[in-house]
Design a binder for these strands. Structure first.
Lengths: 258, 258
DNA sequence: CCTATTTGGTTCATTATTTGAACCGTCCAT
DNA sequence: ATGGACGGTTCAAATAATGAACCAAATAGG
């Protein structure tokens, strides 16, 4: 593994539950040597990607990230474009809606909204990156990307996140094939027991999937009617989202969605 | 220079004017070897800090940055807190207002607003990081930080950005001393000819400056009245901004501001 | 249409940087 | 006082970064 990859990998250990991490925390989380972690954090600190709490000496995400995010949003405003759509969709469905973007074999969560309609909610905190093989978003993205992506994911191994998770390559392949035909993916309790999810792919200008739009909800609310409504809404908004992002769903998918 | 620093330094070459850069562009901008740049970009790409345009092969800022920025804003919402204040201040003054955060010897621009009141505007694009020795924000930040910061900036050299720029350490020291006494800094045509600026420091919980709030305007509008109004508004909003950010200006500064 | 140039990407021996065990000072709770 | 956890530092050993040369593809020019 390259040094840069290692250093940037440190940032992935931050989460809403752990917004500040000490040197020893990183040591434990990564298994790297203390000195290594320290130097990497120092480099990140120097570049403003992390900053140190003046009391704790704990590290947290730094201001450079805000600056760069602002810069990216100015030229490629995916978050600002997606946010209102997701907010509204979450409102009408009453369920958690989130969007994620694909890079390599990773899905980065870009935005999510959890409406206040029900008391029982799906907690999305901690899912800053989604498991490709065990999430509706991952299936939707893989179904409409280069087939090599699916192979890569399978090669990386399919850890069982829950008891009902998909661990067999064959099953995964068939699930993704079905998603390809239907134009959306469905995932039952693969990422967390008691949670169902549906997702539609987002497309770039080449007609390749570059992300996913998904909604997750408790199985206890999963009546046929509710499910149908969710799929209907996702599918109906999907073309617009891709379009607003500068992408274009392929004709075959548009047909499946109609 | 460390490898990580080098790699992350690549990201600083992106700007609103150059949101996409090719391999050769980076080669020219950095002076590094092509292979080096390529490997660094590949690593950044792998981690989602840049992504490649599928046609151009040009690189642009990637989705991980959005994810991390979102995460940081959830726990430390400086941008979301600052934005409305700046928007309003820009509106009342009719001039460009911007905020920046200090990390090491660098000022990262965090947010800025340019109102539509006048036809002649100060163009802030391209100033993603501000020169410490030649900007009102830099002076304000240095005046209320560890004195070692000023020494570091002087040691790094004082390049003449404009003809009127400050290039002498003595002059810089006296300017900063004056800012320390007044509680704000003034900068005339140091970053660009024809542009004046005022800035107030932002403080962290320790009473150390960790950023600055500034406004820049054309000298052609710089009547004494306009200047006084700008200073008055900056100084009056400054305590609240620091406070909303979880910081606290030292008593001496609060006195200078009142 | 063919050539020249630029660009993105790759390779491999050399070099320089990263690495990690051991070490030090500090803070905290016992 | 004392033990442990933590942040930080050091130096020889090992590993990863480096850059000149090379290749292929795309673009530009005549």
């Amino acid at each position: 593994m390259g040094t840069v990859t290692k250093a940037l990998g440190l940032l992935d250990h931050f989460s809403t539950k752990a917004p500040q991490l000490g040197l020893s925390d990183f040591q434990r989380l990564t298994g790297f040597d203390k000195a290594t972690v320290y130097r990497h954090l120092s480099a990140l600190c120097e570049m403003g990607f992390v900053e140190q709490d003046s009391h704790n000496r704990a590290y947290r995400l730094g201001p450079s990230i805000i600056r760069l995010a602002h810069l990216r949003e100015q030229t490629r405003p995916v978050r600002d474009i997606i946010a209102p759509i997701i907010d509204q969709l979450a409102e009408t469905l009453g369920e958690l809606v989130h969007a994620s973007l694909l890079h390599g074999a990773t899905l980065s969560s870009v935005y999510h909204t959890n409406p206040n309609q029900y008391g029982l909610k799906v907690d999305f905190e901690g899912f800053e990156t989604l498991p490709m093989h065990a999430s509706a978003s991952g299936h939707a993205a893989m179904a409409f990307s280069e087939p090599v992506l699916l192979e890569e994911v399978i090669a990386n191994g399919l850890p069982a996140i829950t008891q009902k998770a998909i661990t067999s390559p064959e099953v995964l392949r068939s699930i993704i094939e079905r998603a390809r035909q239907k134009g959306f993916s469905q995932c039952e309790e693969a990422v967390e027991i008691g949670v169902s999810a549906y997702a539609v792919p987002l497309f770039d200008a080449d007609g390749q999937a570059n992300g996913a739009l998904a909604t997750a909800f408790p199985v206890s609310r999963a009546t046929d009617q509710h499910r149908q409504r969710i799929v209907r809404e996702l599918v109906s908004i999907a073309p617009e989202v891709s379009e607003r992002l500068g992408g274009k769903p392929p004709a075959s998918v548009l047909e499946a969605w109609s």
